[in-house]
Amino acid sequence: MRLGIIGAGAVAGLHAQGADDIAGLSLAAVCDLKADAAAKVAEPWGAAVYTDYRQMLAAGVVDAVVINTPHSLHKEMVLAAAAHGVHVLVEKPVATTLEDARTMEDACAAAGVVMVVGMIQHFMAEKLALRTALDAGRLGRVLMVHDYRSTDYRPGSRPDWFFDKAVSGGGAFINIGAHCLDRSLWLGGAPAARITATVLNRFGSPVETDGTMELLLENGVQLRITIASDCPNNIDEMLVVGELGTATVDPRRGTFMEIDGERTVLHTTSPHDIQNAFTAQLADFKAAVGGAAPAVSLAHASHVVELVLAAYAAAETGTAVELAPVPVP
């Protein structure tokens, strides 16, 4: 399978390395508006360089693409790929509206191509270690999840498009919050039934820089997500409280469980964890193209977008938003 990458941003190199690591997959082309950025990712693998994704698709040099671009651009690129019979792995969030997400899904289904949404948290070793422990019943029933993450949304701290709501769809919630919602719903074990939220716009930012979300999942699990900008130390930690004990997950340290005063190490962080996750995600995508069910369903990816939008509505009105039950696939 010949892979193309559209958007030579921060994780493009991880996708490129992943393609080289997987038998039957090769990096064929990289596209970015900046030719030098595309070339930096492409050259180690001898891949072609493009500055127009339409030309890359029309050239017939790829069988599948990774779309790694600003959020609101996903729709037009997915539709173009589908029109050329090219399979798609689109980075989260899948879109900035549910209508766009449905349009993308329908277009790929009609064209007979596979669309998978890149939700990298499902492939991170420290999250998988906890998921395995939960599936084995080691913590009993999950009761509560707290997801606490820092970021930096000071203007100038990241590319300008992140601060343009028409392009990004919002600020810290749709970017960092999408990761938190994804992994917290996954570990919490159910879709959300209700959400409340608050946001802060600091530093003169036109999009939210900080905020909290509180959710009740359909299975009764209580979930709280906190995102804070410009912290003294980087924070990326989940706390899961179960009937029998607790667990913490931190990609910089690992996964730890405590039951009745006894601490167990479930995973110790390795320098290879992030690359391994991106490689595993690409392998999952390749398997989906071959007919397997992907690790992350399109329904889950769309529910994450639904919750981000509901959080914005809840923050604006100061009232809870009730969610319709998510159909079981």
Results as ranks from 00 to 15, higher is better:
14 L>D: 04
15 H>C: 03
16 A>N: 05
17 Q>P: 00
17 Q>T: 03
18 G>C: 08
18 G>K: 13
19 A>Y: 10
21 D>T: 09
22 I>F: 11
22 I>D: 09
23 A>W: 05
25 L>S: 04
25 L>G: 06
25 L>E: 09
25 L>C: 11
27 L>V: 13
28 A>K: 14
30 V>R: 11
31 C>Q: 12
31 C>A: 15
32 D>H: 07
32 D>N: 15
33 L>E: 07
34 K>S: 06
35 A>K: 02
36 D>R: 03
36 D>V: 07
36 D>E: 15
37 A>P: 05
37 A>Y: 01
38 A>F: 01
39 A>E: 13
42 A>Q: 04
43 E>I: 00
45 W>L: 09
45 W>N: 06
46 G>Y: 10
47 A>L: 08
48 A>L: 01
49 V>L: 01
49 V>M: 05
49 V>I: 07
49 V>C: 03
50 Y>E: 01
52 D>E: 10
52 D>S: 06
53 Y>G: 00
53 Y>D: 01
55 Q>T: 10
55 Q>K: 15
56 M>R: 03
56 M>L: 11
56 M>E: 01
57 L>F: 04
58 A>V: 05
60 G>I: 03
60 G>P: 04
60 G>C: 00
61 V>L: 05
62 V>E: 04
62 V>G: 00
62 V>A: 00
64 A>V: 07
65 V>T: 00
65 V>D: 00
65 V>W: 00
65 V>M: 02
66 V>G: 06
67 I>T: 14
68 N>V: 12
68 N>P: 12
69 T>A: 15
71 H>G: 11
71 H>W: 12
72 S>G: 12
72 S>T: 14
73 L>C: 05
73 L>K: 10
75 K>V: 11
76 E>H: 15
77 M>L: 13
77 M>G: 09
77 M>W: 04
77 M>R: 14
77 M>E: 15
78 V>D: 12
78 V>A: 11
79 L>R: 06
79 L>S: 08
81 A>L: 10
82 A>I: 08
84 H>W: 05
84 H>I: 02
88 V>Q: 11
89 L>G: 00
91 E>Y: 10
93 P>W: 14
93 P>L: 12
94 V>C: 14
94 V>Y: 10
94 V>E: 10
94 V>R: 12
95 A>P: 10
95 A>L: 13
96 T>E: 02
97 T>P: 11
99 E>S: 13
100 D>T: 11
100 D>Q: 15
101 A>N: 08
102 R>G: 09
103 T>V: 14
103 T>C: 14
104 M>E: 12
104 M>K: 05
105 E>Q: 13
105 E>M: 06
106 D>C: 00
107 A>M: 02
108 C>R: 07
108 C>F: 03
109 A>Q: 13
111 A>D: 04
112 G>A: 01
113 V>E: 03
114 V>M: 11
114 V>G: 02
115 M>E: 09
115 M>C: 03
